[in-house]
Computed example of a mutant assay.
Amino acid sequence: MVDKIREAMGTYADALKLRATRQEVIAGNMANADTPNYKSVDFDFSQALRQAKTGGKSGSTINTAATHPAHLVKKGKGVNGSDLLLKFREVEKKSLDNNTVDMDIERAAFSENTVKYEAASQSLSGLVRTMRSAITGN
């Protein structure tokens, strides 16, 4: 029984950690919007969450899909301290200083990630309330 509770809560906890990490990555992109030669990065949230759910059994790194091995350029911290490899975000236009940050894309990604973080947080809170109700009978 405890394992099922831990598993259910663990998925939400992993999702919250990864959403927070993604928020930091996107915020970093936005902060570097005026930095010459800065390349916008991101990671595949679904793949990162799948790996977190398996406990990182498929390796210690989260490897996102890329069209070229050199696209995997930075490391962040994933769930349980595993490495989270970030890839360059594909953009249609570059600025004159070779910066690839598109503020419209970054704002949209930031907003979407915020909404999904809040949804996962509320789902976890609901699960805790349900368990508390089941235990206390109220």
Results as ranks from 00 to 15, higher is better:
residue 1 M to L: 07
residue 1 M to Q: 08
residue 1 M to I: 03
residue 1 M to N: 09
residue 9 M to K: 07
residue 9 M to H: 09
residue 15 A to L: 07
residue 16 L to A: 02
residue 18 L to P: 06
residue 21 T to V: 04
residue 23 Q to T: 13
residue 25 V to A: 06
residue 26 I to A: 05
residue 27 A to K: 07
residue 27 A to P: 04
residue 28 G to L: 02
residue 31 A to T: 02
residue 31 A to I: 05
residue 32 N to C: 05
residue 33 A to G: 10
residue 34 D to A: 13
residue 35 T to R: 04
residue 36 P to G: 10
residue 37 N to P: 03
residue 40 S to Q: 14
residue 41 V to K: 15
residue 43 F to T: 05
residue 45 F to S: 04
residue 46 S to K: 09
residue 46 S to E: 12
residue 48 A to P: 01
residue 49 L to Q: 00
residue 50 R to K: 13
residue 50 R to N: 10
residue 50 R to H: 04
residue 51 Q to G: 08
residue 52 A to R: 00
residue 52 A to Q: 07
residue 52 A to S: 11
residue 54 T to P: 00
residue 54 T to D: 09
residue 56 G to R: 02
residue 58 S to E: 15
residue 59 G to M: 01
residue 60 S to G: 14
residue 60 S to I: 02
residue 63 N to Q: 11
residue 63 N to G: 02
residue 64 T to S: 15
residue 65 A to V: 10
residue 67 T to N: 13
residue 67 T to G: 15
residue 68 H to F: 09
residue 68 H to C: 05
residue 72 L to M: 13
residue 72 L to Y: 00
residue 74 K to S: 10
residue 76 G to W: 01
residue 76 G to S: 14
residue 80 N to M: 14
residue 81 G to D: 05
residue 82 S to R: 15
residue 83 D to G: 05
residue 87 K to H: 14
residue 88 F to Q: 10
residue 88 F to Y: 10
residue 89 R to F: 00
residue 89 R to L: 07
residue 90 E to M: 08
residue 91 V to F: 11
residue 92 E to Q: 14
residue 92 E to D: 14
residue 96 L to F: 12
residue 102 D to C: 08
residue 104 D to F: 05
residue 106 E to K: 09
residue 106 E to D: 03
residue 107 R to P: 03
residue 108 A to E: 10
residue 108 A to D: 03
residue 111 S to L: 15
residue 116 K to L: 14
residue 117 Y to F: 15
residue 118 E to T: 11
residue 121 S to G: 13
residue 123 S to L: 12
residue 126 G to C: 02
residue 126 G to A: 07
residue 128 V to S: 04
residue 128 V to K: 14
residue 129 R to F: 09
residue 130 T to L: 14
residue 132 R to M: 14
residue 134 A to H: 01
residue 136 T to F: 05
residue 136 T to A: 14
